[in-house]
Design a protein around this nucleic acid. Sequence first.
DNA 1: GCTTCCATGTAATAGGTTACATGATTTG
DNA 2: CAAATCATGTAACCTATTACATGGAAGC
Lengths: 181, 181
Amino acid sequence: MTIDVRTMCLGILRSGDATGYEIQKQFKEGPFGHFMEASYGSIYPALTRLTDDGLVTCREEIQDGKPDKKVYSISAQGQAALADALTQDPAIDKFRSEFLFFMSMADLLSNEHLTALIDNRLGEAKDMLRTLAESDEDKSLGMKFVHEYGRAMHQASQDFLEQHRDMIEGRSEPPHSEAAE
Amino acid sequence: MTIDVRTMCLGILRSGDATGYEIQKQFKEGPFGHFMEASYGSIYPALTRLTDDGLVTCREEIQDGKPDKKVYSISAQGQAALADALTQDPAIDKFRSEFLFFMSMADLLSNEHLTALIDNRLGEAKDMLRTLAESDEDKSLGMKFVHEYGRAMHQASQDFLEQHRDMIEGRSEPPHSEAAE
DNA sequence: GCTTCCATGTAATAGGTTACATGATTTG
DNA sequence: CAAATCATGTAACCTATTACATGGAAGC
């Protein structure tokens, strides 16, 4: 059994009550953002099921303009279910990079294209680094650890790209369609 | 449109003819292994469709004991389709780590468990590093680049874990069920 | 003798994403 | 005035994984 969205939601709720909307933000920008993800389409059904199973409780906060807010809290049973999930072995880390796929075919791309790709990737790394730097509130040790890990990885990525981009840029001419063959 | 298994197969076939079986190995151990993955269940149907669409050609090699080998080659149309796919913007890199999810909940786990988790993760990083070191044949520039990138990242991961594991290990007692609260 | 490697393929299933539907309020 | 933010939820779709089915040969 692999960690699914339900379990991830339990994990997020452990650091405080939240709405589905807020949980999604945690996946996108929060401390979990750099190694997990989930969309509304999976989060809302997950919260419904967690409620049905008694793993979370839900209180509704009526709001004026917006739709009523549903604030979820993890229950004792939820804590237990989470602890139980942590009994299994974690799946191997997965990294998927279309950027690297593109780079592996560098000889099919023009220098301008390669430069743009690297600049974009570098921009992403810097965005992540900034996001991580911003969310610097008080956290549990575990949170600090994963936070620092993320920082280290994105820094390493940035460093690598800056130091090795010339390896692939500034080479021969872009491949012409009608060039010699 | 995001890079799917079909496109990835085209990319792999660019560096040489291969069977479905060999392609899967490239995803698992080869130079693409650290940033892409695919299983037989997706590779074989992909190759069938690529053949139907004329993007690859297939020649059968009869073997004695084993089932006949189907060796695939990328065609001119396949080259074009690949080049076209590289026109799109690559999707943002995705990293998914159940290991980090576990670590973020470190306060729910015993020191022994945390130690085991880190040791396992470290083992994986070392395995990857070894695999990358082995596949050191002659490659294109692009291949070398992604190879070095992978090396750098796994090295950074290893370094981080070795240098920061004490941050999370050797702490207070594992959470007893009946301990004071 | 058991496991792994070679080798191809199919079917059931799961899991999630994308797009849709709705709508007020705030920010640029 | 347009876009983003807040806020929830459903349904169609897609894609890929898992398990299954088959089986000889080679290595441990």
